[in-house]
Structures are given as structure tokens and as C-alpha cells.
Write a protein that binds this DNA or RNA. Structure first.
Length: 1046
RNA sequence: GGGCCUGUGGCGGAAUCGGCAGACGCGGCGGACUUAAAAUCCGCUUCCCGGGAACGGGAGUGAGGGUUCAAGUCCCUCCGGGCCCACCA
């Protein structure tokens, strides 16, 4: 190496220099408190600026450290935050740790180290890694869900929910949460009938039927029963998802295909007394709120489907000969009460009480042994087994009910395709109108009665009947008219258009047939098309016996008209599905056998976990087993130190905290319980809260993380959450789509309860939500679709035409993209990339990979391009030999123009979260610029600052700006002179018949006429138009000219 | 099975409102520097045909059809890939 290159290397942008610059400025930011954000009322708070709350989903600090997926969203939010600061906003951009939860505990169990210790280590590592990226978090607001002064308030919010009920009439019928005290007041003044909450799933019908005349006449236990049945947090005996391997029950949301989301262990159904949240009371509110937030459509759809609102009816079917102890009637829920005339049998879930009653007192026709065996087997099957096969199984119960619409006796079956957890656990089966019922009826030879005909069938029938013999083709018009007339409600008209089009053209080729879609309708019309040149007579003949939809092939669930649906009192025949529903519900209600009912797929939220590493409940039990809240002043109920946190792997749920006997047994006075005498012996709740608890409200605590008297200060909350804003809530929330239903639904629920109680000022927590795409990696796949680790594959082809071969076998493998995983050896560690190129290059690369929302493959080869960009921009601004800034003496007009354009483009791209194209614009500028003036470099450094904050800060210092003005991150975004964005002359493509044939240069403001003249005068165009007639010239000013000529 | 997203050079991607397809980066090719290599810098790089070159012609955004002066972009059908949900009556 020569002396000259050594000298040059000294101030060249190398990985080492990048590292030096980056760590130096990171330390300086910390020291200066550059990104510490004052709250309203604090020194330095500027109330004239608008606020912007930019939130990342906080990470779960795992032992493995940051994944490359973390910095993707975090860099995006950092760019936004930095840009917002520079455009005059007060920016709240915090970070913290979602640190309670199963993985830390499992890891601790494996290694024998206490979860508090491993979690602290993981947090320290995560913090170090995040700081190394130069993210502009206000670290003074850092919080962790495991901190006592955080979970103290998690417990406090739990108690607020515990102390609330949902009043469906409040808020002019929308319903809202209210304090329990107000419910008791209503009972005491008899403003509300005193009875057990009819919507409380945890109580049986007998309990729900009880009522009392006055509050004072009730015993304490009765009062407790009634009040507890209304609480939004309640203890309920529930069939839960019990996972023996994890030693805990899981929420529905944490069970995937019958296995635990975490660890993929089998999950069983088990009755257990658990803390539940009455989230179902908020189902409609949670649905309605989705209309007010700026969220990805797909996420709103997922939440809507998870809530799963359906409108239908509950109907009672009287038992023909009720067994002793059974109810007189079997109550079902159906979304299709209009099909009741087609109900030919009934099905109850294996757990349904009627099964038990039948077994206790088997009627004459019952094969009790078969029923018992089936019910027990079905109950004991794990969810995995239950979902493995969708083959319909079931046995008859040997009893009948009477179909109230037809008056006919129909049999009751027990089958596991009916679930106890939804509706009433019993259904009326309509094989002609429901695919599952149809399969079951086919399997067990049960009768099928058509009750709805597809609209097209009706159309054909109608046309065949009314068309006139002397009017060839008239049936088609009639049919089309009919179709157009009756399908307004749900069948998309274009489907009919497509199908009718085929009929009209008599189907050009036979190949069209398999391509036709649109269901039944198209098929029937194709049948007609198949007839060649149909005349009315042949259509009549063809459909004479087929004027009904033939249900022997499949159930029909689409839009249609009711048939075969009449009795002496009511007829649905000819009505559309919605009309028929309304009519039959009215009839049922008048007869007292049923009523309209809304149902939800959403279940109440199971909130207890039998684990150690979570927030303890602020609840104790007295000697009678009644629960009592711990008063707010005595919070937190701290997690007791334990040496033995080994789970009790068992089929019988055992909370771990039961082992902490000293902590477990205490007195009401010690525990801080007001509702009992101080010396009363109490036992603490031994379950803990699930990992979701802290993330349900952390966005609020960030607003005021040090507050000791309230979970968040009123002013801080109102300001940062935007109480008065048009679109209130966190301004931008960036995180993964995997939280679309879990965290994002739970957090909305907590927030809405707090809002109803007046504790927070906005109805929704997150005004705008954005999901960053998954960062995948290249991997290799054999022909049989099995995957091969990347280090077991080599390229036998060229770079240009790669030919990937598995080294061990020589087998050709295909390159695909897949999730990063240890087994595929395609995981990228962010630390390594920073080591090689620095954090600025890493940030640029992840933002440059593609659109933020898209899933994109990591390709380490590509990172060099962004490093080269850093080198180039460094060289543009800095003399590599001396390290001094290098300036142009005077501004070059072209460079100045390009700078303005680049700044404009970057600013607009940041606003639309298109960082990839913003970076491309900066690269283009650097490639084109030769040398900048001091003033140009000043503006350039500001523009760079959100993307490569360290280089920008270093340039800012080299410009001698740091001392007088402070960090570049706190400077205003450079102004764009809009005059600079327009050219005097522009080049316009001239097309002939849509193909570019020439280009002309016209003044920027040229009007249509002059552009047309210039285009037609262009020599090349003149030449090409020779001998042709110009029919039309389309001119789009400022864009293009298209000449239509032949 | 249902829902949502998606398909553009060898690769990642750009084209923001229907108006010049392939910006920018990687890779590749050629050149400079170097004893040499790496690094760095400069040029070319959608494919096909013609030409020494400048350039000219044609094709082209998964496939087929449609609307339009004009389609990657809008409509219909089909095919492939990804994610989510999945016996919820």
C-alpha cells in the first residue's frame, strides 16, 4: 500500500469510519437529550406546534436479539418521526418492552435462570441494538410491562374493568360501560329490574330466570350473584383451551388448528373457573369503531370476521316426548329461519344437556350405549383430532321434536359438527340449504326438502311458462327481464351478463364451458346453450320436470325465492330470502316459539394464565371463596420472588403461584382489601394475566410514563392522543400484520372501556395503522417441496443463469423465498450487517428493498449498493484526504434545480411512506451532482438526516453548524422553490396510433393547438404520415400527442 | 373451501390520476487505475432482427378476451405465488 492511498483512506467513508461517526453521535444525542420530548406544561414545550404521535409495536425482548424484521418498521417510523420534527411538529416517539410472557418463562425453565434475570439481559441487549441504529426515541420515556410502576396500573385498569358493567341502553342505544356503583344504584331505586344478566354466558337458564322485587330483600349472596353477573371482568366456569405441555389455558386467539400458537402443543377442552372479560358486550362497538380508523382494509376485515356478527333467530322445537329432567323444547340458533320448512332433522352438540338427559332416562327408541360411546368419544377428542377429519359422524338420540312450521315429527341427532360454544349448541338441519347439513343428510340418508330455488331456475321456469310460441327468442328476453328484476339483492349482475352472453352467442367454442363461473346460474344457462338452437317447446320439454332446483346434487345457499314453504298461517312462497326471514320471524314471535337474535363468533376473552411470569391479579378470595378487589393505594400486587417456577405439567390445571405459600395466604388488611375486616384471612388469586395485558394500554403510559398518581396524566393524554383532533388517537402505529386480531382487538377493547368510564379522551387508540411487510429470505426447495438449508446448495450454472444444486445429492433445487428460520440457515443478524457497513447503510438498505408494506426477500449482495451511495455522497461533500468539506465556489444552476427537485420528491415520498423511491431520488442526485456550495450542502444534509442521521449530523458539524444551531435533526426541513420544479421547455412524445414515433420540444405552458401544430410539423412525423389521412389528434398538454391516422 | 394481497429484465424493484414500460440498486459485460487481485472510478446492459456505428424495425408487464385515440394501470375469465381464516348453523 502506498503512502498516497493511506492518506486517502484516512477520511474515506469506510465501515470503520461509519462506525466511529455513528457511535460518536449516538452518545452525543443521549448526552444532549436531543430527542427528549417535553409534555404540555414542561419547560421547553412549544404549544404552537401540532403534535404527532408515532408509535412502534414494542418488541418482545427475546434472548435471540433483534431480527432484521424489527428495524424495518422501526426505521420507517424513525424517518417519519424525524421528518415530522423538521416540519414543525411536537413528536412523541417512544420505545419499550413487552416483557411478560411464556417464552421467557419457558427459557428460564430450560436454563434454570430466573425469568426476571434473563428478561433484563434481553432488554439490555435489545436496547443496545436499537440505540446502535440511531433511532430517535425519547429514551426518557422507556417502559417495560414488567416494571412494578407499570404493572401497578395494568392491575388498576383491570380493577376498573372489574368494577364496570355494560349498559346496552346507555348512549342512546349504542351501549357503554359504566361503574358498577351506578348499576347497584339502579337496582336500589328499582330503575332496573333486579335479575341476573341475561347475556351472561356463565349462568344457566334457571339462574337467569331468577328475579327479585327489591334490593334490600336480597341476601348478600344474592346481591353478589346479580352484580357479578354484570361485571366486565368476571369469574366464569368455562370450557377452556387447556394445554398440558405449557401448563396453562389459552385464549381462542392463541390456539391455531387445535395447537398452541406458542410451541405448537396439543390443546384440549377442559372446564375451568377462570377470569374472563365480557368483550362480547362490546362486539357492536368494536365493529362500529372500525369505520372511524384509518387502518388497512384487510385488518379491518379480519377483525370484522373475528367478531363475526350474524343476524338470525332463536327457535324452540317442542320435544315430542321429553325425557325426565329435560327441557320441554329444544332451542336452536339459525341464520336462515326462512328455511325452517326444510328442517328435516335436528342436531345437538355432544356436550349439549339434552344428551345427558337422554342418557339419564333413555326413551324407548334410544340406543343409550351408542349415544354414550359417541358423546364420550367426541368430548375426549382433542381439537387436533376433531379438525383432522371433516367427515360427518353422528348418532340418533332416539327422540323426536315437532317442526313448528310443518307440524311434522323430525329426529334429533348428536354430532360433533355442531359446537356447544356457539349459539345454543343445537341446530335445525336444513340439508337443501346448508352444505354441512347436506353432507350429513347424504351420509345418513335423511330426507331433503327444497325450500329455496335459485333465481335463475325461477327465471327459466317463468320464461318457459310465459313466453309465446309465435315469438322466437322471446323467452330469452323474458328470462333476462326476470333475472334483472329479481336479482338486485345479492347476485352480481355481471355474472348474469356473462352467462346470458354465452346463451346469446350460442357459445362459440366448447372450450368456454369449463371457464364459465358464476355458479348455478351460469350452469343452467349453459344447459340451454348446449341445446343448440332451442325453441320454446324444447326448453319447456327440457325443464318440464326440472322446473325445480334439483337438491340431490348439492345444497343451495345463494340468492333465490322460497318454495314449499307454507302452512295454514303463513306462506313464504315466492319471497326473496330477506323478505322470507322477516316474515317468518314475525310469525314465530307472534306464536311465541322464536325471536330474531343477533349472534357473534367472538367469545368472551379468557384472561387467566396458570403461569408465573405475568401480572398477578389484584384480587383475593375470602374463606367462602368470594373474590374481593385490592384497593388502588395498595397496588401493585407484586409478583412474589420464587425459586421454583417449574410448571406443573398436568391434565389438571394448577397455577404456579400456588407454590408461593407465604405470599398466597394473608389477611385483608395486609392485602389492602376494604370490603373485609382487616384481620380476615384471605387467599390471593394465583393465576396471572396473559402476555397481552401490558400491550393493551402501553400507548397511553408513554404519554406520561413517570406519573405516580394516575395511569396517565389528563393533560398529557388529551394532548398526545389528540382529544380534539379530527382523527383522534395515535397518529401512526407501525407494526406487523400478525397482530391484526389479537393485540389490536384487545387494546381497542380496554381503550373503549376506559373511554366509557371517562378515563381517556378518545374512542379509539390508534387512528392510523400501517403494517410493514415480512422480510423473507431466499431458500431452496426440492421437487417434492421440501426445503434445503442454504449452505447445502451450490450454483453450478453462471451468475447470469444460475443452476442450483444440492451439494450432497446433486439434485436440482429451485430458489424460492421463505421465512427466515434457523433450520434453513438463512437468518440474517443485524449486528453483522452493521459491523460490515454501518447503521446508516443498514437503514438505507431496508428502506430501499421495496414498498414498506410488501413482503420482500433479504439479499445481502444488494446491501453494497447502499454502502456505495454513502461513500459517494461522502465524497461529494468531504475531501477524503483532509476530511474537510469541499465546496463549489458558486452555485451551478443545474445542480441547484436538481437539489430542489430532489428535496421536493423526498418530502412527498416520506409523506406517502414510499422510502424506496425517496432514496432512489437521493442516489440520482448524488450521481448527477459534481460539487455543492456551502448553502447547498446545508440543505442536502438536512434532507439526508431522516434516512442517514449519522452522516447528516457529521456533515452538519463539518459545516460548523452544530455549535450555533444544535443537532441537524432539530433544524427545519429545507424549503422548496416551486419555480425550480418547472422547466421552460419540455420534451413531448409524439405517437402515431399509440406508438412513440418522435419527440418534440415545446414551451412548458404550450396549449393544445400549438402542440398539435408542432407535432404535425415535425419532419419525422411528416415523413411517416405521408400518404395517410390524419383522422384525429389527441393532445394532452404537458404530456403527449397521439395522432390517429390511416 | 372462503377472504385479502400479489404476478413487470438474470435478481430486488420504479412507473403517485388511463398518457414515453423497465427509474434506482444488485448482478453481468467492457474499460481505467494496479506487477496482480481486491476496493474504487467510468461506460454499456428488456428480448429479437438489421447495421461498423449513429440508428432503424419488431415483440414485450402470468395467459386469453374486452373497453379506449392510448392499458402494467380499468372490466371479464383462467393460471401461478403468498398471507389470513376455516364444520360458527
Amino acid at each position: 500500500m502506498t503512502t498516497q492511498t493511506e492518506a486517502r483512506a484516512k477520511h474515506k467513508y469506510t465501515a470503520k469510519l461509519a462506525g466511529d461517526i455513528e457511535t460518536r453521535w449516538q452518545a452525543w444525542w443521549d448526552e444532549q437529550g436531543t430527542f427528549v420530548t417535553p409534555n404540555p406544561g414542561d419547560a421547553g414545550f412549544d404549544s404552537s406546534k401540532p403534535k404527532f404521535y408515532c408509535l412502534d409495536m414494542f418488541p418482545y425482548p427475546s434472548g435471540a436479539g433483534l431480527h432484521v424484521g424489527h428495524p424495518e418498521g422501526y426505521t420507517a417510523s424513525d424517518i417519519i418521526s424525524r421528518h415530522k420534527r423538521m416540519t414543525g411538529h411536537n413528536v412523541l416517539h417512544p420505545m419499550g418492552w413487552d416483557a411478560f410472557g411464556l417464552p421467557a418463562e419457558q427459557y428460564a425453565v430450560q436454563t434454570g435462570v430466573h425469568p426476571a434475570e434473563t428478561t433484563k439481559k434481553s432488554i439490555d441487549n435489545f436496547r443496545r441494538q436499537l440505540k446502535r441504529f440511531g433511532f430517535s426515541y425519547d429514551w426518557s420515556r422507556e417502559l417495560g410491562t414488567i416494571d412494578e410502576d407499570f404493572y401497578r396500573w395494568t392491575q388498576w385498569i383491570f380493577l376498573r374493568i372489574y368494577d364496570s358493567w355494560f349498559d346496552p341502553e346507555a348512549d342512546s342505544g349504542h351501549g357503554k360501560g359504566r361503574p358498577i356503583a351506578e348499576l347497584i344504584e339502579q337496582f336500589m331505586t328499582n330503575a332496573r329490574p333486579i335479575r341476573v344478566n341475561p347475556d351472561a354466558a356463565e349462568h344457566d337458564n334457571d339462574t337467569k330466570a331468577r328475579s327479585w322485587d327489591t334490593w334490600d330483600s336480597m341476601t348478600t349472596d344474592e346481591q353478589r350473584l346479580v352484580v357479578d353477573s354484570y361485571r366486565l371482568a368476571y369469574l366464569g366456569e368455562q370450557t377452556v383451551n387447556w394445554c398440558p405441555k405449557l401448563g396453562t389455558a389459552l385464549a381462542n386467539e392463541e390456539v391455531i388448528d387445535g395447537r398452541s400458537e406458542r410451541g405448537s402443543f396439543e390443546v384440549y377442552r377442559k372446564p375451568l373457573r377462570q377470569w374472563m372479560f365480557r368483550i362480547t358486550a362490546y362486539a357492536d362497538r368494536l365493529l362500529a369503531g372500525l369505520a372511524d380508523v384509518d387502518w388497512p382494509e384487510s385488518t379491518r376485515i379480519q377483525q370484522t370476521e373475528w367478531i363475526g356478527r350474524s343476524e338470525g333467530a332463536e327457535v324452540d322445537f317442542a320435544l315430542a316426548d321429553p325425557p325426565a329432567g329435560a327441557d320441554e323444547a329444544l332451542r336452536v340458533y339459525t341464520t336462515r329461519p326462512d328455511t325452517i320448512f326444510g328442517a328435516t332433522y335436528m342436531v345437538v352438540a355432544p356436550e349439549h344437556p339434552l344428551v345427558g338427559a337422554v342418557l339419564l332416562d333413555p326413551p324407548a327408541g334410544t340406543d343409550a350405549g351408542t349415544v354414550r360411546t359417541y358423546a364420550e368419544e367426541a368430548r375426549n377428542r382433542s381439537d387436533v383430532e376433531r379438525q383432522e377429519s371433516k367427515e360427518k359422524t353422528g348418532v340418533p338420540l332416539g327422540i323426536d321434536v315437532v317442526n313448528p312450521a310443518t307440524g311434522e315429527r323430525i329426529p334429533v341427532w348428536v354430532a360433533d359438527y355442531v359446537l356447544m360454544g356457539y349459539g345454543t349448541g343445537a341446530i335445525m338441519a336444513v340439508p337443501s340449504g346448508d352444505e354441512r347439513d347436506f353432507e350429513f343428510a347424504k351420509a345418513f340418508n335423511l330426507p331433503i326438502v327444497d325450500v329455496v330455488y335459485p333465481t335463475t331456475v325461477m327465471a327459466i321456469a317463468y320464461a318457459a311458462e310465459h313466453a309465446r310460441e309465435d315469438e322466437p327468442g322471446g323467452w330469452q328476453t323474458l328470462m333476462a327481464d326476470f333475472v334483472g328484476h329479481v336479482t338486485s339483492e345479492s347476485v352480481p349482475p355481471e355474472k348474469f351478463e356473462a352467462a346470458l352472453g354465452v346463451v346469446r352467442t350460442r357459445r362459440k367454442t366448447a372450450d368456454d364451458a369449463p371457464n364459465m363461473r358464476g355458479g348455478v346460474q351460469a350452469e343452467w344457462l349453459l344447459t340451454i346453450a348446449d341445446m343448440g338452437e332451442p325453441d320454446l317447446a324444447s326448453i319447456r320439454a327440457r325443464f318440464a320436470g326440472k322446473r325445480h332446483w334439483d337438491a340431490s346434487g348439492a345444497a343451495f345457499t345463494g340468492a333465490g325465492r322460497a318454495v314449499n314453504s307454507a302452512n295454514d298461517e303463513v306462506s313464504l312462497n315466492g319471497l326473496s330470502v330477506p323478505e322470507a326471514k322477516a316474515t317468518i320471524i314475525e310469525w314465530m314471535e307472534s306464536k311465541g316459539i322464536g325471536n330474531g337474535k343477533v349472534n357473534y363468533r367472538l367469545r368472551d376473552w379468557l384472561f387467566s394464565r396458570q403461569r408465573y411470569w405475568g401480572e398477578p391479579f389484584p384480587i383475593v378470595f375470602d374463606e367462602n371463596g368470594h373474590h374481593h378487589p385490592v384497593r388502588a393505594e395498595s397496588l401493585p400486587v407484586a409478583l412474589p420472588p420464587m425459586a421454583d417456577y417449574q410448571p406443573i405439567e398436568s391434565q389438571d390445571p394448577q397455577p404456579l403461584l400456588a407454590k408461593a405459600t407465604d405470599w398466597l395466604h394473608t389477611t385483608a388488611g395486609e392485602a389492602g382489601v376494604d370490603s373485609l375486616p382487616a384481620d380476615a384471612k384471605v387467599t390471593r388469586e394465583t393465576n396471572t394475566m396473559p402476555g397481552w395485558a401490558g400491550s393493551c394500554w402501553y400507548q397511553l403510559r408513554y404519554c406520561d410514563p413517570k406519573n405516580e398518581s394516575r395511569f396517565v396524566g389528563l393533560d398529557a393524554e388529551r394532548y398526545w392522543m389528540g382529544a380534539e383532533a379530527k382523527n383522534p388517537g395515535v397518529d401512526l402505529y407501525i407494526g406487523g400484520a400478525e397482530h391484526a386480531v389479537l393485540h389490536l382487538l384487545y387494546a381497542r377493547f380496554w381503550h373503549k372501556v376506559l373511554y366509557d368510564l371517562g378515563a381517556v379522551s378518545t374512542p379509539e387508540p390508534f387512528a392510523r395503522l400501517f403494517h410493514q411487510g415480512l422480510i423473507t429470505s431466499f431458500a431452496f426447495q426440492r421437487k417434492d417441496k421440501t426445503l434445503v438449508p442454504v449452505d447445502e446448495v451450490e450454483n453450478k450454472g453462471t451468475e447470469e443463469a444460475p443452476e442450483w444444486v444440492e451439494t450432497a445429492t446433486g439434485e436440482r433445487v429451485g430458489q424460492i423465498t421463505a421465512k427466515m428460520s434457523k433450520s434453513l440457515k438463512n437468518v440474517v443478524n443485524p449486528d453483522d450487517v452493521i459491523e460490515q457497513y454501518g447503521a446508516d447503510t443498514f437503514r438505507l438498505y431496508e428502506m430501499y428493498m421495496g414498498p414498506l408494506e410488501a413482503s420482500k426477500p433479504w439479499n445481502t449482495k444488494d446491501t453494497i449498493g447502499l454502502f456505495r451511495f454513502c461513500q459517494k455522497l461522502w465524497r461529494l461533500c468531504v475531501d477524503e484526504e483532509t476530511g474537510a468539506p469541499r465546496f463549489a465556489d458558486e452555485a451551478d444552476a443545474t445542480t441547484e434545480k436538481k437539489l430542489h427537485r430532489m428535496i421536493d420528491k423526498v418530502g412527498r415520498d416520506i409523506d406517502r411512506l414510499a422510502f424506496n423511491t425517496a432514496i432512489a431520488a437521493m442516489i440520482e442526485f448524488v450521481n448527477a451532482a459534481d460539487r455543492l456550495t456551502r448553502d447547498q450542502m446545508d440543505r442536502f444534509a438536512r434532507t439526508l438526516s431522516p434516512f442517514v442521521p449519522h452522516i447528516a449530523e457529521e456533515l452538519w458539524a463539518k459545516l460548523d453548524k452544530t455549535e450555533p444551531m444544535g443537532s441537524v435533526a432539530l433544524q427545519p426541513w429545507p424549503e422548496v422553490d416551486h419555480e425550480m420544479l418547472v422547466d421552460d421547455e419540455i420534451e413531448i412524445p409524439v405517437q402515431i396510433l399509440g406508438k412513440v414515433r418522435s419527440k418534440i420540444v415545446v414551451p412548458a405552458g404550450a396549449d393544445q393547438k400549438s402542440m398539435e401544430e408542432a407535432a404535425l410539423a415535425d419532419p419525422r412525423i411528416v415523413e411517416l404520415l405521408e400518404g395517410r389521412t390524419v383522422r384525429k389528434v389527441i393532445v394532452v398538454p404537458g404530456r403527449m400527442v397521439n395522432i390517429v391516422a390511416n
